[in-house]
Write a protein that binds this DNA or RNA. Structure first.
Lengths: 184, 184
DNA sequence: AGCTGAATTTACTTGGAGTACGAAAAGTTT
DNA sequence: AAACTTTTCGTACTCCAAGTAAATTCAGCT
């Protein structure tokens, strides 16, 4: 395990344990090294957020993958992806809050969104072209989907106004029909 | 005009002119007063964000209102709301970035989302109950809608990958069908 | 004018990001 | 093996913005 990976692991550990408000000093302390080591190996805080974003998105993608391998790409598959997504966010709430802490205007969150969108765009595009529908809006849809999940999840995490799967299903219900109809 | 209103106006002015990264000192300077006056009349930075969020949401609601007074509540009306929303965000991009600068986990953004959701929930609920459909998911839908707009708008503001109305229409196309179908 | 109290400004503290410089450890040369 | 060089690391700093306490000015009153 490289130094960098050890540091990222330490950052993960302390974020999970202490919440999203950890400082760079906290992370250095958790890794048992001094702060300049963190800066040498990871870069500044934005770089840390990016690295952890990447991990987080990978985790999401794996979970979605696992949840949909047997699916046929229909509504049930989409619903399963959405539930899997919310499950990961629930499990990794502190990491989620850490990587989304900057607003949508910050570069790190923009990258997170872009990264999350890759798989979504692929799937939406496949869905559209497979059925002869216009693929032009898929980029907006990917961003919209990521945003919808981010905000709905954040609000749900905060006050649990509904059970988790219901929130995921609500979003499926909202988005699925639009994905599969023609522009009309 | 009260002191508070003058200060908020000054804050608005400097945010519009200088971008979302203004400091409390900048705002005090723009208002021609010293920092403690700002804190006395407005409160801390979160309170400022909340006050400006309220303004921003009011602006959005007025624009949507204006764009839909003659509408019949159908898809065209929804599309008009969405376009009006994007127009306001475009006009007030710095304010938009300022009030969304905290992540979705922060209290001020949570409040912004909640506030934005009020009108949306009303309209969605009316739409559902008016047609005998289940109104339970509307809260999630409102959050999802706000998130979708926030993120899509932020990405669009950044790199203008499409013209504004198209992005708004993309979102209409994505969401409208789901709003008007039964849970299936 | 001099005094009291409110309003305001200056100048400070605090906290976290990021870094310069000195100390220590490892390797290199004779 | 000792002295010297180079790299690595940690201490202790700077910097910046938020937020505040104490000093000051100003208004009203006697």
């Amino acid at each position: 395990m490289t130094d960098r990976e050890q540091l990222l692991a330490a950052a993960l550990r302390v974020i999970r344990a202490e919440g999203p408000d950890v400082t760079m000093d906290d992370i250095a302390a958790a890794a048992g090294v001094s702060k300049p080591i963190v800066y040498r190996n990871i870069g500044d805080k934005d770089a840390l957020v990016e690295a952890l974003s990447e991990m987080f998105v990978d985790r999401l993608n794996e979970a979605v993958e696992r949840a949909t391998t047997r699916g046929t790409g229909g509504r049930a598959t989409f619903a399963a992806s959405m539930r899997a997504t919310f499950e990961v966010i629930d499990d990794e709430r502190n990491l989620f809050l850490f990587v989304t802490a900057g607003g949508p205007g910050t570069e790190s969150v923009r990258l997170l969104v872009a990264r999350s969108s890759i798989r979504i765009i692929e799937q939406f595009t496949a869905l559209r072209t497979g059925t002869g529908l216009d693929p032009l809006p898929v980029r907006t849809w990917a961003y919209a989907t990521v945003g919808a999940i981010q905000v709905a999840a954040a609000m749900w995490l905060r006050d649990g106004y509904r059970d988790r799967d219901s929130v995921a299903d609500d979003i499926t219900q909202l988005m699925w029909p639009g994905l599969t109809t023609s522009s009309g």
